[in-house]
């Protein structure tokens, strides 16, 4: 895992440039930036909930990742840093190939029985 891949990047991360990419000549218009951030946080929390933590928006361009118990927290600026912060706080590995995480997301997608 690379702790630094998120740290060394500057400017909007490619995920936060929306579908405009931020640097493309002919990008289509993206979703409103703030709606996009809210939506992103909702989806991030679907994942972080599995690990007992959560994220919230801060200062318009950062995230606070926090333990569910309200204890340890970290301020980060992009998604790679969210995963690292989650690991720092929970001591668990952030891995989308974790079968239990996948099962949880599949169950969410299937909806209540």
């Amino acid at each position: 895992m690379c702790a630094l891949c998120g740290v060394l990047m500057d400017g909007p991360h490619w995920t936060e440039a929306g579908t405009d990419a931020g640097r493309s000549d002919d990008a289509p218009a993206g979703r409103d930036r703030y709606l996009e951030r809210d939506y992103r946080i909702t989806l991030i929390n679907d994942v972080l909930g599995h690990y007992g933590c959560s994220a919230r928006e801060w200062a318009g361009n950062q995230y606070i990742v926090q333990n569910a118990s309200g204890g340890a927290s970290e301020v980060v600026v992009n998604l790679p840093q969210v995963w690292q912060a989650m690991e720092n706080i929970t001591r668990k590995l952030a891995d989308p190939l974790d079968a239990k995480l996948i099962g949880r997301l599949e169950a969410r997608a299937a909806g209540p029985e």
């Binding site: 891949c5 992103r40 989806l43 998604l79 690292q84 891995d95 989308p96």
Partner: peptide, 16 residues
């Protein structure tokens, strides 16, 4: 797109 970014960054974080 948002889910894709979350997924790919997490994948590369864990298995880059």
């Amino acid at each position: 797109w948002t889910a894709f970014g979350i997924w790919l960054t997490m994948l590369l974080h864990a298995h880059g």
